[in-house]
Structure formats: C-alpha cells, structure tokens
Amino acid sequence: MRERICLQPCLGIESVESTIGRQACYLAHEQLLGPGRSDLGCAPALYADVQEDIDFIRNDYVVAVESCGKRCAKVLVEEKAGEVHATVMVEEVLAKAGIDAKTLPREHLPLDHPAVKAVAEEVARVSEELLGKGRAG
C-alpha cells in the first residue's frame, strides 16, 4: 500500500505557471502535507536515474503538477515506468481562482502568494484524497 505522495512538478523554466507549480510543491511538501507524508520529485534527477527519485515514483502516489498541456511531468514519470495517480493543472487552478498569471513575474513568487497558495491547496486536496483512498483500500 502506498503511504506517501510524490509531488512531481513539470519543472519548466520559461513560464510563470511552471514557477507557480514549483513553489506550490514546496508549500504543499513543507507545510500542507508535511515531509512526513510527501516527497519532492525532481524531474532532472528522475531522468538521470537518481535512485531516490526512482523510488519516489515506484513507492508513492504520484501527483503531477503540470504548467501546460504538454504534461511533461506525466511523460517523464511514464518513461521511467511510473504511474501518475492524480494531476493538478496550474492553468486550470489559477483560472478557477480568478488569478491572471500573465501579470506575474516568472522569476520568483513567495510561498504566501495567492497563486502559489491556490495551487498548493489543490495539490494538498488531491493528495489527501489519494492517501484517504489508500487507507480505506
């Protein structure tokens, strides 16, 4: 039974959505879910076959955090024989929250920024659902 969540952001660098997704994963990992229940999946390390990152996608529930429709996190996880159990689309969360990402800087957003918080809360929500299902199953 899987007992932890691997937060797997796409880790793009060109768009503000990718920055928001990355920061949201930190917030979800460090505060909302906690390091006791979640791991941060690093795309470059997973590609490079770093064992820790391979273990995350094999042993945890994987939540992909995608900044666009190309779904790079999913592509990589599946290439490494893992499975994505839930996906959070940054653009969709921001649209629902009424946040226009185009006005935000791509370089950095603090963890208490509303865009980061909105995405992190959605990441935590789907993660809790997965963990709850695991306990029930």
Binding site: G12, I13, E14, A43, Y47, S67, R71, A73, V75
Partner: peptide, 23 residues
Amino acid sequence: YMIAKDRPEEVEVVGAGPLTGNV
C-alpha cells in the same frame, strides 16, 4: 533568469522540464 535578462538577444533558455518531457 539572470543570463536571459542580461543577454536577451543572444540566449535561448531551454527548460529541463520540456526536454525530459520530450517537447
């Protein structure tokens, strides 16, 4: 980001994410 800002005409930033995602 600093490199992209300082050399906007000379540099093309390529993300690790899109490369590992086979874009």
